[in-house]
Design a protein around this nucleic acid. Structure first.
Lengths: 300, 300
DNA sequence: CCGGATATACTCACTTCGAGTATAAAAGGA
DNA sequence: TCCTTTTATACTCGAAGTGAGTATATCCGG
């Protein structure tokens, strides 16, 4: 069992939600995701990253999960000694104390993916994007049908509904069609803000993963302060999903899962009737896979 | 951005279902998963693995997805030059031509995880396992409550239902409690067949991933022959999930998803009334995220 | 031609889910 | 003070989905 030699680096997608806006930690004024070499001193990848993030941001890292490992040949740092393997992680950080201002480098998700925010209705930029995609679909007759189906599905066209989970598929389609750039070339033609190397793709992977995860795992609470109102919770979920939710049904969903409990206090900072404050029931953390069996079991 | 140096290897969990039994491809007579160095010549990790599997098995690899990247310090191949990064993949292979006999090295999943097969009712070995786990729970008073909740949830005790997706959590609990061994020591005390290094843990990861995936993505069909009966399909799903399903409801589920279509032919190899043969509708492949929105949307 | 075995089809109660409506409690201006 | 605005909270109703059971069809072997 021979072993190949390679360079290894860690790349982190660290997200927080401040002021109803989902943000990601960046370096180089928003042009790259924080990354670093994989140090030998660490016990494991997780531990290494956790430690490193603590040093860098001063904020403890709540949730951390591995995203994906990239090692394609057309990546950076290729030299004679071997190629680079990039192991990316998704981390969730609690709301920042000083949200705006000159903080290290938190940038809104939707700077990079303006077409992914549907909270104010379908964004206008989407019509331009789907128009360009139609051209791309028509461009190659042989693959036309196949391309059409992929575009319709990913972007919710032709009867299909918009699915917020498909952010990565959308980005990859746009990349294939030449609508987004990864190295910053031809900025006039492309949509959304670009990033260094393939960092924007990694961010898309993180966003898609998180959007899928909030549906079956109570990870939103890693982004919430100690106590919060139901509206705050809803707005955070909406910020992540890029969608508006139905308030009564959201509340029903939340309390039938029994994930939170009242603190007994209320706040009137919200304008109208004072809202009850809630806290997350930590006891519940490891229970609750939020099942969703989906398989028709038989009792035998 | 300095880059750390490391050894890189690929590890594959290749599964097939033959004769209603889920199997995994192994080397060393079932003691290890196939693995190899990460070669520089490959375009990407996926492509490299796909090519390598084709050469090794002669069978084309249908579905392939990345599983997890391990780099813990207590792994093998540690030397002065750096540590080993293992990138694991899950692959699905269509039914083998010659199932049993002296084939390369396909072994049943449940040799390694006998407690995971609930098709014939709750396996007897489970009572022994949960008994030992109760001892472990009681052993450390400080963490007792926490441990109890984890065990109850993972193994479906105290009112919770057995959840087939939690295979990895179960294995990790058993590992923590010292009930399974990774290096083959103390075979008398441990449950299920062991494997080289952490390969059994990687297999558990693959099984858990696949069990979760079949619920929302039509990957089962990567394991089925070109045409099949509904019963065959059901038995394959049951083999993977380690559960028996409710036949009428399974059929309803399948045809309301419109994933398959009749071939027009029937087979009478099954004993009783001849069964209709079906084929997978490949057109559907990239559509169908099998949604499951779970978020209470608002129409605005 | 009849029972065993397997395949296929239908029914029914119960839960979940989308969508809409109604009431409660604060703040602020006429 | 009272009325409007704003936000929070509570309830209702029908459609769709799900768990569970029952009924009918078609083959094989005696």
């Amino acid at each position: 069992m021979a072993i190949g030699l390679a360079h290894a680096e860690l790349i982190a997608v660290l997200s927080a939600v401040t002021g109803d806006e989902p943000r990601v930690m960046t370096v180089r004024s928003g042009d790259a995701l924080p990354s670093g070499p994989f140090e030998l001193g660490h016990r494991s990848l997780q531990a290494g990253l956790r430690e490193w993030v603590g040093d860098q941001t001063g904020h403890p890292l709540g949730y951390l999960e591995q995203l994906y490992t990239f090692a394609d040949r057309d990546r950076t740092h290729e030299d004679a000694e071997g190629r680079t393997i990039s192991i990316s992680y998704l981390g969730l950080v609690r709301e920042q104390a000083a949200p705006g201002a000159g903080k290290p480098g938190w940038h809104g998700w939707y700077e990079y993916f303006p077409w992914e925010d549907h909270r104010g209705g379908t964004p206008e930029i989407l019509t331009a994007i789907t128009g360009r995609l139609q051209d791309w679909v028509a461009a190659e007759p042989a693959r036309r049908e196949h391309r059409r189906r992929r575009v319709d599905f990913a972007f919710g066209l032709d009867g299909a509904a918009w699915n917020e989970d498909l952010g990565l598929q959308r980005y990859e389609l746009m990349y294939e069609a030449g609508l987004v750039t990864e190295a910053g070339c031809a900025p006039a033609k492309s949509f959304g803000r670009s990033m260094f190397a393939d960092h924007r793709r990694i961010l898309a992977t993180g966003i898609a993963r998180l959007r899928a995860k909030i549906k079956y795992r109570p990870v939103v609470f890693e982004l919430m302060p100690e106590s919060f109102t139901l509206s705050q919770l809803q707005h955070t979920v909406e910020a992540l999903a890029g969608l508006t939710l139905h308030k009564p049904n959201f509340r029903r969903l939340i309390d039938q899962q029994e994930l939170i409990e009242e603190t007994g206090e209320t706040t009137s900072e919200t304008g109208g009737r004072p809202a009850k404050l809630f806290r997350y029931r930590h006891a519940v953390l490891e229970e609750r896979a939020l099942s969703g069996s989906k398989l028709p079991l038989s009792r035998n």
